[in-house]
Design a protein around this nucleic acid. Sequence first.
DNA 1: GATGAAACCTTCACCCC
DNA 2: GGGGTGAAGGTTTCATC
Lengths: 150, 150
Amino acid sequence: MDQIDQRILRELQADARLSHQELSERVGLSPSPCARRVRRLETEGYITGYGAIVDETRLGFGFNVFVSVKLEQQVDRRLVEFEREARTCPEIVECWLMTGSFDYLLRIAVADLNEYEHFLTGKLTKIPGVASIESSIPIRRVKHQQQRIR
Amino acid sequence: MDQIDQRILRELQADARLSHQELSERVGLSPSPCARRVRRLETEGYITGYGAIVDETRLGFGFNVFVSVKLEQQVDRRLVEFEREARTCPEIVECWLMTGSFDYLLRIAVADLNEYEHFLTGKLTKIPGVASIESSIPIRRVKHQQQRIR
DNA sequence: GATGAAACCTTCACCCC
DNA sequence: GGGGTGAAGGTTTCATC
């Protein structure tokens, strides 16, 4: 992991479809050592994948809600069950198991408040073991990197 | 936005480096109409970019903290100031302006608790107007999509 | 939406420092 | 150990149907 690897990561985080040729120019290398480094970063697990970034609003799920969930009992069976539901549920974009006064923090992506109500009453409250739910609604996304950038 | 466009989006969300040829096979088209559709999705703003996904733990910032921030007064000048700081601060990966009992929700990415303490005392508490801070530490990331997938 | 040809890019063996 | 070169093979792109 030297300077050049870090620049490669930075460039590919900003634009994953860069050709090796273009990338090599930006990091000051010729195409083949550049391609070799990219491959190494992939096989060694620094780069885990490449994704297209889509406009969520245009696709009809630009309304986000943060939800704090408390379970009745933190027994293993309940956690496993909740997490299985969370993983299969498309509205739940993020799910974190938390320390502290509640058990899970979720980020929900839906079209609007109306659709959120449907999700809440139709899905979330029906997951077994859910004791309480607290919704926090953002006004605006100030900053949203997918991940930290070096 | 038909079935094929949605399949293109799904495939590119999963792997942005797919060649048009490979992509065209997966969505049941030949390469050139497929490339035309991708270009249209880009120019019409459905696809806003392509990013490499990196292993944050391997790069030394796999420790996340959620921070709720309250400001002294919600006057415009204070918000603008806080948001400018948030945007330039690399540890702050996400920042949301919130409704409800606190003003901002942040996600912080650092190496460990020790580095978090440095961030807290050296940076966050020094931003003018910050009245109170509450840290919530996740145990585990259960699900983390970059965005909702159709 | 498909075809085909030109231009371009990727990839690999190989050489070099 | 890494970086550069060049040629073969594959991919993108565009006009055209």
